[in-house]
Design a protein around this nucleic acid. Structure first.
Lengths: 297, 297
DNA sequence: CTGCCCGTTGCGAAAAATGCACCGCATCTG
DNA sequence: CAGATGCGGTGCATTTTTCGCAACGGGCAG
């Protein structure tokens, strides 16, 4: 939308902290950009950037204005999506922030399914830890978030919730693989491979271990869930993940065992949006599909 | 704000139902306006006007778009007002829709008081009956509504409420003027002067009369509360109003007597806004002042 | 100091918006 | 029935706005 272009420029300047850099990003000369900003400030009645040596920075007025812009833009997108919906074919774009656990199986299947029914809809998937995911929503950068054990629930509206128990990921010849359910203390005695503290699985494990007066000392700590799954094939160690991101390989080389519920609390995988926001049609429908799919699992 | 000018044009076209008329209103030629509309429709991806013989009319897409514009514009005004507030002196504009009863004494006093403290704030007062007042809020044409006995309470958020009993307005030599409180049946036997059915006072009276199996048959039915007050000076009749719009004249020519509570239900004078909306600073502060003043009465 | 990068400004060129005249069409009118 | 009227829409010259280029002054690091 052309009439919001000045705001888009403002956002670019705010992001890069420099008019010249922003001008380059937006395919403009610095002089033109500068004049647009100054012109807007004059019209708006107050500066929105504070000029600091080495660049510019948003002042409080600018922060509020930028928030207005994001809200306004997102609402316009909603209207457009709604209109496209009632003119017949469904088009639109769905932006979703999610945990890594959804990447290998769940999300690709769901997106493919939705696109099979509505080829006009496109997707953006951003991988974020649970704290970042909520900020994505708050800044209108994503429509939906699908995260395990969100942190701050302010401004976060739960659309659907399913419980997920923490599972151990083991090589099939691991001594503990024989048991149908593992106790936490058993795991603490073996070498472990765990995600870092930003992730919900780790948070639940740390919390549970502290209750036992023990700590989790992983031999490998990483941000990559994929690395965890592959590493346990090479060393006799225990990985930890949630079942939605796990599927037994054909060769049976890996097995998954739940941790006893009385040791480690069951976590929640939560589908949510920004509180009070009305989503574009495509996003709302996709959220409904996700909720239904989660319900089946 | 310049970037919303196209929307303002769209609104003008929607209002007048004709591009040529709207062009005149907005100081443009019809051709320029036409191109802006068509250009916007192309960019938006869908027509927003339906072309009918003799002019144009908004289609559903246009309705939604216009609603977005009004919301967006009002939110920008809120941001601007907020910024002006934090830069020091308070400026802004308060738009209020109210019942006639507030016009003679209450509102002018309150506005003057507020302006004495904040000379930078200006006001628009629109007189609306109780149904129209809520539509004013819904279309973002007013920030606040102060009405007696609102009709539909959806999307209407009550900020403050005070009870108001219906009062009879009598000339001092009226036979009923001697009594401290009047019964409804006494009034029905005298000639009466009443507002029409759009007003809350009349609604309460009609409802009460029906309970008695009687009807109110006013000799003069009008939209003007002022006319009612002045007419009873000329004919020995009973007028009906609420006390906030009444003040005994110095010469004692008029007296006001409440109707018995067991005959006519006590109505509510309600200060409200559009549900969920965050008002500009000036409007929010003025609403607080109004609420406090109502509380004292 | 020198070089560098920053925001900012003057000025001519390019682009966008506007005004004017006019078209085709439907409706109203005598 | 024909002419007049008022509507949305379009081609073209003109005006207004915006942009790109070059240059200026000011902080800052080496």
């Amino acid at each position: 939308m052309k009439h919001l272009h000045t705001f888009a420029l403002i956002e670019a300047v705010a992001r890069s902290g420099s008019m010249r850099k922003a001008a380059e990003d937006m395919n403009l000369t610095a002089s033109a950009l500068n004049r647009r900003i100054r012109g807007f400030e004059a019209e708006f009645g107050s500066p929105i950037f504070e000029r600091i040596p080495g660049g510019v920075r948003l002042n409080p007025a600018g922060e509020m204005l930028l928030h207005h812009y994001r809200m306004s833009k997102s609402d316009l997108a909603r209207v457009q999506s709604h209109v496209a919906d009632l003119t017949g074919e469904r088009r639109g774009h769905v932006r979703i922030a999610c945990s890594q656990a959804l990447l290998p199986y769940f999300l690709p299947e769901q997106i493919a399914r939705y696109r099979a029914a509505h080829p006009g809809v496109t997707f953006t998937v951003t991988v974020r830890d649970r704290a970042q995911a909520e900020q994505e929503l708050a800044s209108y950068a994503s429509d939906l978030a699908l995260v395990f054990e969100p942190v701050y629930l302010v401004d976060f509206e739960v659309l659907h919730l399913i419980p997920q128990r923490v599972h151990a990921v083991l090589r099939k010849d691991h001594p503990l693989a024989a048991k149908p359910e593992l106790r936490l203390w058993e795991c603490l005695d073996s070498p472990s491979v765990a995600p870092n503290a930003k992730y919900g699985v780790r948070h639940l494990l740390d919390f549970a271990a502290r209750k036992l007066g023990r700590t989790l000392n992983p031999v490998l700590e990483t941000e990559s869930f994929e690395l965890i799954r592959h590493y346990v094939l090479h060393e006799q160690a225990i990985g930890f993940q949630i079942p939605i991101g796990l599927r037994a390989p054909d060769d049976g080389s890996l097995v998954f065992r739940p941790l006893a519920e009385r040791d480690v609390a069951t976590g929640s995988l939560i589908l949510g949006q920004l509180r009070g926001r009305t989503l574009p049609v495509a996003s709302a429908r996709f959220a409904m599909q996700l909720a239904a799919a989660l319900h089946e699992d």
